[in-house]
Design a protein around this nucleic acid. Sequence first.
DNA 1: CCGATGAAGTTCAAGCTTGAACCTCATGGA
DNA 2: TCCATGAGGTTCAAGCTTGAACTTCATCGG
Lengths: 161, 161
Amino acid sequence: MPDEPRWLTDHERDAWLALAKLMFNLPSALDAQLLRDNHLTLFDYFVLSNLSMTPGRTMRLSDLASHLNCSLSRLSNVVKRLEQRGLLRRAPDPESSRYTVATLTDAGWDLVVAAAPGHVAAVRDYVIDGLTASQIDALREVACHVTRKISDIPEPNARNG
Amino acid sequence: MPDEPRWLTDHERDAWLALAKLMFNLPSALDAQLLRDNHLTLFDYFVLSNLSMTPGRTMRLSDLASHLNCSLSRLSNVVKRLEQRGLLRRAPDPESSRYTVATLTDAGWDLVVAAAPGHVAAVRDYVIDGLTASQIDALREVACHVTRKISDIPEPNARNG
DNA sequence: CCGATGAAGTTCAAGCTTGAACCTCATGGA
DNA sequence: TCCATGAGGTTCAAGCTTGAACTTCATCGG
């Protein structure tokens, strides 16, 4: 427990609160568009989209999970539902029967193709359009900084000095 | 349906994917710290923190809900749990019996005071520290831009031109 | 060849969010 | 006075996420 915590300055707090608001509301805004127009959550879309960009439209579930930074448990549930809807198929990996691969079906491909324009338009509308090139640059830098810090997770409370 | 959607450039896509990763993972990282150290979710913390900064430590639920950009239904559930834990109390608003106000208890205040340093340290660690002043500025501008676009929601698909 | 270890994936219970239905209270019109 | 309207809140069912327990498969040591 530190003697005197380093509180945020006004400048920092404004930035943090704005980011927090974004973090709370952007996912549901993007979910809403995809659910309304394509009956997909953003997470579903990312799963299908990742498969669609892979040669063979096929990935191991464990690779997909680390790409998406999600638990295998969550992915397993989502993939099961997507399979029930006929958007992808699961099969044991022919190269090593201890993996499972997911393969996008034609219906899944068609759905990604149909959903992409609306989704990209929403991303443009909510995020990208209206920003200058240097703001987009700064956004990328800041977001990468944050995700790097998060995935490090060396030991949040390490204070052995 | 647009003839040819305006896909993202590489530059734009890098920024968007980084933001998406942040959006998916920062909430759980901050939740994890608060849950581990104070048995609070980030949303719980915001509720208590908002009350703690209000004169009288009291707010109407509907005001709280619009401050937090959340549904009244969600807030009602969360407030019920926080009340069961003795962190706040609900009561009809003395000024107009059709409102309900939530008031932070002493235990709730103590918990916010105890939780704040660790939470701020996590925000610093994951987000603020390591950014330059101009990056913090850009973060605020970009995040405000996004939240403004979201809360507008004039008509996502309006294309009557 | 056999058992131990560990990674990949599934399942289940518990908890949370959402949206719809519902209740209550205040206001406004007849 | 009485009913209609509508905002504030609550509740309930349905769906999703999480973490733990469990199964299966491959690798490694004896």
